[in-house]
Structures are given as C-alpha cells and as structure tokens.
C-alpha cells in the first residue's frame, strides 16, 4: 500500500465526518476509485472516465460568506486557461511558452500589471469539472511560491508559466455565488481539509509552508462559470531560484500531511 492510499483513507474518514450531508456521494465515489487499477485519485496517473454522477456534482456546498477583501484570487497557468476556455484563434494551437510571452509582451506594452482576461479568451472560465478555486487571501506575485503554499499548492503543481487571476468583489461578482468547498470538489486532491458543514462560512486551505508544522492556510471557496470579463490576469514566471528558495514538494511532504490528517 502506498502513502497515497493511506492519505485517501484518512481523507475519506474526515470528509464523511465533517460534511455528512454529502456522505453517500463521497462513499460511492470512493468505492469506484478503489476499484480502479490505481485505487485512489491522487498522484501521477490516469483513470478511466468516471461514470458516477456525483463526480460532476461540484459546487454543491452551501453558499460561502467570505472574509472581507477587495479581490478574490486564483493561481493557475496559461495552458489550463487556454484549454478550458474558448481561446481566441491566435492562441489556440500555440504552446504555453508562446502564449505566455504574448501576455508578457502585452503587459509591457500596456504598462499595466493586470490584463483583462477577455483579451485572450471568451465566454466563461469553466475549470476542471466545471469548478474553479478562489481565495480572498492576497496571493503575492513576487515571489509567488509562498502564496501557493498557503493555498495548499506544493511546487510540483506550480508550473513555470503560471498565471494569477483576480476578480473584484462587487455586486457583479456577487451574482456568481461562491460555495463552501465539498469533498466532491476536492476529490482528486491529496491536500484538502473539509470544512464543518453545517456551520462553516467558507473553506480553509492547508498551509504547506512549513513541513514540520502543517496548519490551516488561507480561506478558500469554489465557483463556476464566471464570465471572463470579470477576471484580470497577471503572468507570473516561476524561476528556478524561487523554487530553490522555497522548496516545498509534494512527495517529501506526504508523511507530514498524513500525520496531520491522522491527528484531526
């Protein structure tokens, strides 16, 4: 049994305890994954298309009431944005570095730090399984990795051509009701702590900054189908020096993460 399988077992235990309203969906999904060749949804690999309806039942948690902030932020990358939205033709068949360089060039030319995402893609930002993750905690961009760690992202998941996205929290944003994340939303992630429902007003990410002291991190929420017109983007190159300065990787941190789950 690998450590991922142990983490999967602990995650399911906590998921069922903290959010019993969704227990049957979680159990059904967990049983399906256990029957696949890799036995869990974490780590490198691929599994067959999941036929369980609850797999797609994302953003089904209670409405979130986030702590005050001017913006909500998301850390992603240029390939994910181009691939999951309707990219304008000139970006469609280009590799990530070419699209990233175009963003940086546009940034230089416009003398603006943040660019309108709608200059590059149209429609809504669907995300994987129609769900995107956001935090009201300010994600810094220079350096970026410490902020990534506070939302539960180790360096292994942060690519060199990353993008920060942000949405201003005003009346328009309020229409796109953000939700408390559920274990279904986070089913494929080894790094997730289910907020207690009922009761929780938002989710809390796991802060990976210190492997000897895994702890709660930034508030987090999930949303779907946000129009790209509401989103601004900032290209953030993650250079090797930054990785050396903040070396948090997924595999070395798994034992500490498992221990954290076991203590809860």
């Amino acid at each position: 049994m690998t450590i991922y399988a142990d983490i999967f077992r602990e995650r399911i235990r906590l998921d069922l305890r903290e959010q019993p309203f969704i227990a049957s969906d979680v159990a059904e999904l967990a049983n399906w994954f256990r029957a696949t060749p890799i036995a869990h949804p974490y780590g490198p690999g691929s599994y067959p298309p999941c036929p369980i309806p609850s797999y797609q039942r994302t953003c089904a948690g209670p409405p979130a009431t986030l702590p005050p902030s001017e913006y909500v932020y998301r850390l992603t990358n240029v390939s994910s944005v181009i691939r999951t939205t309707n990219a304008k033709p000139r970006y469609r068949a280009a590799i990530s570095s070419a699209n990233f360089q175009r963003l940086q060039a546009a940034q230089r030319k416009s003398n603006r730090l943040w660019l309108p995402l709608s200059d590059y893609v149209i429609g809504v930002l669907p995300g994987r399984r129609d769900c995107t993750w956001w935090t009201p905690g300010e994600l810094k961009w220079n350096p970026t990795l410490p902020s990534a760690h506070k939302i539960g992202m180790p360096n292994s998941w942060v690519i060199p051509t990353s993008l920060l996205l942000r949405i201003k929290r005003d009346d328009t944003f309020a229409k796109f009701l953000a939700r408390v994340p559920t274990p279904i939303d986070a089913f494929e992630s080894s790094v997730f702590l289910a907020a207690t429902v009922p009761g929780a007003r938002y989710g809390i990410a796991i802060d990976l900054s210190d492997p000897t002291d895994i702890r709660p991190g930034f508030p987090e929420t999930v949303a779907r189908d946000i129009p790209v017109e509401l989103i601004e983007t900032l290209p953030v190159p993650i250079n090797p020096d930054e990785r050396d300065r903040f070396p948090i990787e997924i595999m070395p941190i798994l034992p500490a993460l498992l221990s954290y789950y076991q203590r809860l």
Binding site: G45, V78, S80, I82, R243
Partner: peptide
Amino acid sequence: GGDLDDTIDRYYGSVEDLMHTIRAN
C-alpha cells in the same frame, strides 16, 4: 500513451508544462 492524462489535465494544462515543471523542480 495517455497514462498521465488526468495528471496533466488537473495540474499542468499541457504536456510541455508537465515536462517544464519536472525539469525545473
């Protein structure tokens, strides 16, 4: 061969970014 499709889809968005990230890390 498609054995990393879900991983690429979930974290990296493209196969070249998977390679770039592993090299950089």
